[in-house]
Write a protein that binds this DNA or RNA. Structure first.
Lengths: 224, 224
DNA sequence: ACCTGAACACCGTTCAAGT
DNA sequence: ACCTGAACACCGTTCAAGT
């Protein structure tokens, strides 16, 4: 080996992975809004500018944090008597993982390169659609319907929680009073506009897509 | 007329609606990231603090801007030979409206009280599901599947555009090389992981949901 | 009563200067 | 070569002071 390390390891041995790990923990604990490059540096006990020697910008760093969180997805083996049930359970498991770290969710929403990073989900999703005969481009399209449906609904989760029906005044107040003349159907259904149950709506909609994929499949399974 | 305007009209007659309109225009033109309370005040030719006499905080103001943009949704009369086609065209029209003002999209993503503000879409959506027999809570659930599916996919639109397959290096590079041993199915399908066509994927998935809603309907229509 | 200027406590990022 | 301190150009928001 060459000369001994007379040179102090850069930034006290500050490895990019360590920065990403600490940033992940801070965001997970305090939220994305709280997080700043200066607070990260303080947590690392380092000059605020040192982080910029490893990452070009805050956006770059956040992208790395998001990819780290997504790559760590590990899904359970899929169980279920029917294909439909297994497909549903994959979507639910992926959603649960994304929701597990609620403060990271806002980050995933803006992360580039999202789907490729969720390796486990891609692998299992593709295997699933192959089971019922989807191949090549058709398999990827079928997988993508399920995958992006799940991601989209998951990102909406916070919107459901702040739904008008949950607020004082309810939905009628929120939209400034619904005019029964211009929107009669809406007005008639107002009593049914209770708070959205995000879990229920997700499962309901996922079942529709799953049934559609199974019904159109090249090799539909029996006992569905 | 009474005394001449010795008293300057408050903030030069600054009405909350005017503030919201100018904020909307600035965000639409320059983007949400560019926008700030100070720049808004400059555009209004007013002291930065004057806006705070009308809105408690930046978040409050942005919420008002988002609701203004959503309340203005006007959808075309639905045409189409079959129920499925009309349901699809409603979803596409809503998505087109949300995508029309791309810089506002980021705002909608965080807006509270989203669905109630899209009056036109709610009215037409409920009318549509009633056509095939959905009533009361079942009608609202069916509508919500369509509505939130559409909103979720629309919010994802920017993610599709930054998909790895579009980047130099492609998807394989983006996830650090896909291991054929641990993710064989993914590896085998890599050639099919081209850029996501957001429009195509949306229409494809919407058709699955629409068909599911029609198939499960209390009064399924003929000639579908 | 209504508005403003200055100030507070922050940001992300650049860059000349230190070791 | 590697790191840092000070500085730049901003933020959202508070509040005492003006008219």
């Amino acid at each position: 080996m060459p000369s001994p390390p007379t040179v102090a390891t850069p930034a006290a041995g500050l490895h990019p992975d360590d920065i990403v790990e600490v940033a992940h923990r801070l965001i997970s604990t305090h939220g994305l809004e709280w997080f700043s490059m200066r607070k990260l540096a303080a947590a690392l006990d380092v000059n605020p500018m040192t982080v910029y020697l490893r990452f070009d910008s805050k956006d770059d760093l956040l992208d790395a944090v998001a990819r780290r969180g997504l790559a760590s997805v590990e899904l359970p083996e899929l169980t279920g008597a029917t294909w439909d049930e297994r497909a549903l359970s994959l979507c639910v498991a992926l959603r649960d993982h994304l929701l597990a770290d609620r403060n990271l969710l806002a980050l995933y929403a803006t992360a580039n390169r999202l789907s490729g990073a969720v390796l486990q989900a891609v692998e299992q999703g593709l295997r699933l659609v192959e089971e019922i005969g989807y191949r090549d481009d058709a398999a990827v399209l079928a997988f993508r319907s399920l995958f992006w449906h799940t991601v989209g609904f998951t990102l909406l989760h916070n919107s459901f929680e702040s739904f008008p029906a949950d607020q004082p005044g309810g939905i009628d107040d929120a939209v400034g009073g619904i005019d029964a003349e211009t929107h009669p159907t809406f007005a008639r259904h107002l009593p049914s506009f209770t708070a959205v149950d995000g879990d229920e709506l997700f499962v309901h909609t996922t079942r529709l897509i799953v049934a559609g994929l199974a019904g159109n499949a090249p090799e539909p399974q029996e006992h569905r």
